[in-house]
Design a protein around this nucleic acid. Sequence first.
DNA 1: AAAAGATTTTGACATTGTCCAAATCACCGG
DNA 2: CCGGTGATTTGGACAATGTCAAAATCTTTT
Lengths: 140, 140
Amino acid sequence: MRAAADILRQHRLPVTAQRVAVLSEVSRRPHATADEIAEGVRVELGSISRQSVYNVLTVLTDKGIIRRIQPADSAARYEDRVGDNHHHLVCRACGHTQDVCCAKGHAPCLTAHDHHGFAIDEAEVIYWGLCPACQRKPKR
Amino acid sequence: MRAAADILRQHRLPVTAQRVAVLSEVSRRPHATADEIAEGVRVELGSISRQSVYNVLTVLTDKGIIRRIQPADSAARYEDRVGDNHHHLVCRACGHTQDVCCAKGHAPCLTAHDHHGFAIDEAEVIYWGLCPACQRKPKR
DNA sequence: AAAAGATTTTGACATTGTCCAAATCACCGG
DNA sequence: CCGGTGATTTGGACAATGTCAAAATCTTTT
């Protein structure tokens, strides 16, 4: 992946330390929450306000540089991998999130046959289950 | 649908006015949020505490009597229709939610081909777009 | 180097939920 | 039909995740 600063410039976004750090963090640790990203950025930058993390994540999402996913029972998560058709595997126990390719290329069954007049622009798929680690833990 | 009280008894749940009212409301108005349900129940019962609405919704969900769905950017919504394999169409603008049958019967493509060791128990699909009404409104 | 405009910060506030203890209610047995 | 008992409901505090707005600071550009 190109340097964060270049990506920002390419999108005509003023390059600030906060933006570079947040984007790098999203790239380094996919599927992290805003809070986790803030922590990671603080290691690098010393500090960043909570609001700035949200500001940056919002502008990056709006530009299509990153993607926001919001599984149930979890704060929003962000990822760097955009533009391809991939979905997610989420662990019900620990929230661990993993990318999965769409099962059948162009998702034959992801076009609702009766769309009730909706103008559909995205089919979001989340597979729920237990990750390998949580399967081994004693049930609660 | 059977009377709410019967359903509760069938699941060995003590029948309370709050439970009957909440369950009826979920049944009458599918995809409502906890807050909307509370409002509806108050019309019938005069009052109900916020906590009770959550308590009832939780116990009904745990018993499998209702289902909770949590689309991004929305409070959790509840529905009465359980046990069948249906998904949702959600309007990005107004949040209006509509049921849709799975496009291909038993969802051939809803088994991720590489599940990374996860024990998958559900494939959740949400189609995002604009509902007919919001398509007609001026863009924001 | 300075001006102009955008970004960051700070602190308050909103929404959705959860926790806990006290009061109340539903159901069972006598 | 009436208590007793255990479950449910309530009220109030609290937590997590975001958003809003205004002042301070930084990036870019001239």
